[in-house]
Amino acid sequence: MVVTFQLNGEDCRLDGDPMTPLVDILRQERFLTGTKAVCREGFCGACMVHVDDEAVPSCLKPIGLVQGCAVTTIEGLSSGNQALHPLQANFEAADAVQCGMCFPGMVMSLSAFVRDNPHASRPEIKAAMVGNICRCTGYERIVDAVADCLDQARKAGQLAGGIHV
């Protein structure tokens, strides 16, 4: 079956099994290996991508269901020499990364979250991270960095006249 969708802003046409998980197409056919296939059951969040601007696990998304959709992967979030997403910049500055394998998924989940929840509290940030497992860091530094990122955005927004992330 032929499936067409937008992948990081470009047309993507595939001819294959429509029940192939999106993550396998990304990694094995498009070599977009930033999306990690860790548990392949929707529990770990390492394979999160944006489908029509919503953060979803790509391991459970058959490509048949992305026909006509816009898919953004971690590679598309800040490509080439583009500046880092503010969350990525905060994670880097806070020394939040260890082995790093959970972070692309963490960034994809949380970038959608901060966009939609500019006033999120710390407990709300933690609740948003329930589907993103990190085995190395013990989470708190990630939560701090997200909170700082929202804080900075609010302050910048106030200065610029109330524009939020």
Binding site: R27, L32, G34, I74, E75, L77, Q88, E92, G100, P104
Partner: peptide, 23 residues
């Protein structure tokens, strides 16, 4: 010093190639 990690940026951008990204 609190030296930051030099590998953080690529890891955060999904550019780091772990062994299982090298098939």
């Amino acid at each position: 010093m609190n030296l930051p990690r030099r590998d953080a940026r690529d890891k955060l951008r999904g550019r780091t190639k772990y062994t299982n990204d090298r098939a």
